[in-house]
Simulated assay, not measured.
Amino acid sequence: MNSAFDATAIRARAQIAIAVALEVGRETARFRRDSNSGTLAVENKGLQDFVTVADRKAEQAIRDRLLSHFPDDTFMGEESGGQSGGTGTWVVDPIDGTTNYIRGFSHWGVSIAFVIDGRVEIGVVYDATEDKVFHAIRGGGAFKDGRPVHAAATADPANALVILGHSRKTSFDDYLALSKRLHERGMDYRRMGAAAIDLVRVAEGAADLYYERHLNAWDMLAGALIAEEAGAMVAMPPVERLLAQGGPVIAHSPGLADEFAFILDIEGLAPANR
């Protein structure tokens, strides 16, 4: 780790990020409740990429609050962009699950990761469904509103529940083939539309797999660390590559490693952690 960031500095950032995620998450939920869906200014920016007034307000609030405490850190956000720097970098999705948010489906969240030297050291996710915050510091376990969470102990695929994401940047035929394969193994599956929340569902043991072939870094980094610290097996490309171009993420219950090994082969990734 960068010598400028000892354990005390990391804990201080985690505490502020938790408070910011909760505050901004609640403000964003309140803005949605108080707005008619037809009045939300939605612009089509491309494939599955919508920006709203709420997105911009939330990201600016997160940026201002984090950098007011840590002005030497750099910031990379879904809306405003930015680059990772030699110091630590905050990687933020102000509303992960924007389409869900617009339509009033509460499966969305706020994702805040802190990256140092190509490693995610802090992950914080506000879960709008439950109005709770998940967080992890590398090496310190995973928590939901301060209480430890753990990946499921599922070992029988017939008892597994999986969540699959799909980007229009990837093949829908491949997605269907994967869904069919999992179905034939007896697994139940969902597609929910918010990667950060899907990853914390694996972390807390509510789901046994989350997999998506292409995500941006701000969608996945916080949730991936939380899942890993909860004991899930997590595989993804190097963080610097994800920051530059995005990529796949796989997180699953450790007892189902053999079941999901073929996904690692599809993506050409090394075996997951642990």
Results as ranks from 00 to 15, higher is better:
Glu78Val: 05
Ala152Arg: 07
Val120Pro: 00
Ala270Phe: 02
Ile18Ser: 02
Arg32Lys: 14
Ala196Thr: 04
Gly46Ser: 07
His183Gln: 07
Val249Met: 06
Asn2His: 15
Ile112Trp: 08
Phe260Met: 12
Arg56Phe: 03
Trp218Lys: 08
Pro237Ala: 05
Arg30His: 05
Asp93Cys: 06
Ala270Ser: 14
Gly88Glu: 09
Tyr210Met: 09
Met187His: 07
Phe70Cys: 09
Glu121Met: 13
Asp265Val: 11
Asn273Arg: 10
Ala155Trp: 01
Leu264Val: 04
Ile137Phe: 00
Pro71Phe: 04
Ser179Phe: 05
Ile163Met: 12
Gly193Arg: 07
Gly146Thr: 14
Tyr211Cys: 15
Asp198Met: 08
Thr89Asn: 08
Asp117Thr: 10
Ser106Lys: 15
Asp127Arg: 03
Val249Lys: 03
Ala41Leu: 11
His69Cys: 14
Ile266Asp: 14
Gly268Arg: 05
Thr28Lys: 05
Arg213Ser: 15
Pro248Ala: 06
Leu178Pro: 03
Lys45Val: 08
Phe172Asn: 06
Gly97Pro: 01
Asn100Met: 11
Ala194Lys: 01
Ala58Arg: 03
Leu243Pro: 08
Asp73His: 00
Gly141Asn: 10
Ile62Leu: 10
His150Val: 00
Ala128Glu: 14
Leu243Asp: 11
Val133Trp: 00
Ala158Gln: 14
Ile116Gln: 09
Ala113Cys: 11
Met187Ser: 09
Ser35Ala: 15
Asn44Phe: 07
Arg26Tyr: 01
Asp173Lys: 12
Ile163Ala: 07
Asn2Met: 03
Gly247Trp: 12
Thr52Asn: 13
Thr98Arg: 01
Ala232Asn: 04
Ala61Glu: 13
Met236Arg: 11
Val120Glu: 04
Val91Leu: 08
Asp72Cys: 07
Arg13His: 02
Phe114Asn: 03
Val202Ser: 10
Leu47Thr: 10
Ala272Met: 03
Glu228Trp: 03
Met1Thr: 14
Thr129Glu: 15
Pro254Thr: 09
Phe70Lys: 12
Ile226Phe: 09
His166Val: 10
Arg190Phe: 05
Lys180Ile: 11
Leu199Tyr: 06
Glu204Ile: 04
Trp108Pro: 03
Glu229Asn: 11
Leu215Trp: 01
Arg185Ser: 09
Arg168Leu: 13
Glu78Arg: 15
